[in-house]
Amino acid sequence: MKSYIKIFFDNEVLAYLFFGVATTLVAVSTRLLVFHWTDQEQLATIIGNIAGIIFAFVTNDTIVFKQERKGWFKRLIAFGIARLGTLLLDVLLTFLFVTQYPQIIGQFVNMNRSAINGIETIFAQVLIIVLNYIFSKVFVFRNKK
Rank of each mutant, 00 (worst) to 15 (best):
A44V: 07
T38D: 12
A78S: 14
Y4D: 10
V140A: 02
F8S: 02
Y16E: 01
K144S: 10
M111C: 02
T99G: 08
F135W: 12
T45R: 05
Q40H: 14
V109S: 05
Y16N: 00
F65W: 08
I134C: 06
L14R: 12
L92S: 13
F57R: 02
K74I: 13
F8H: 08
T24R: 00
T86D: 02
A82S: 15
I116H: 02
Y4S: 12
Q100C: 12
V34K: 03
F9G: 09
F55M: 06
I119S: 00
R113D: 13
A15R: 05
V64C: 01
I50L: 09
Q100A: 15
A56P: 08
V34N: 01
L76I: 11
F73Y: 10
M111K: 05
A22T: 06
I5F: 15
V126W: 11
N143T: 10
K144R: 14
F18H: 01
I129W: 04
S3H: 10
G48Y: 06
L93S: 14
A44N: 11
Y16W: 03
L14D: 01
L131Y: 07
T94L: 10
I50E: 02
K144I: 06
I54Q: 05
G52V: 05
I116Y: 02
T38C: 06
Q42N: 12
L43H: 01
L127M: 11
A56S: 14
V26H: 02
F135G: 09
V28Q: 00
V34S: 03
T23P: 03
A44D: 08
V138I: 14
N49Q: 09
F19E: 01
A115T: 01
T62L: 11
L25E: 05
I46W: 01
K145G: 10
S114N: 14
I128E: 03
L14Y: 06
Q100S: 13
I105S: 04
I47Y: 06
R142S: 04
Q125C: 09
R142N: 12
G71K: 10
L87W: 02
A22H: 00
A27Y: 03
E120G: 04
K74H: 12
F8M: 06
V13K: 08
I104L: 14
I46K: 02
I122D: 03
W72M: 09
N132D: 15
V138M: 12
L32N: 15
T86H: 08
V13T: 11
P102Q: 04
I7S: 09
G118I: 04
I105M: 06
G52T: 04
F108E: 03
I53T: 15
Q125L: 00
V109N: 05
V126H: 07
D90M: 14
T59V: 08
W72S: 09
K2E: 13
N11M: 08
L96W: 02
T59W: 05
T59L: 07
V91F: 14
K144T: 11
D10M: 12
T38V: 08
D10T: 11
A44Q: 13
V58S: 08
G71M: 08
F79S: 07
A22N: 00
A27M: 05
K66P: 01
F123A: 15
N117G: 06
I105Y: 03
L25P: 05
I46Q: 01
L92P: 04
N11A: 08
I54A: 13
G52D: 03
L88R: 05
I119G: 00
A51E: 07
I129N: 07
E120P: 00
T86S: 13
G48N: 05
F95W: 13
I104H: 07
V138K: 15
T99H: 13
I46V: 15
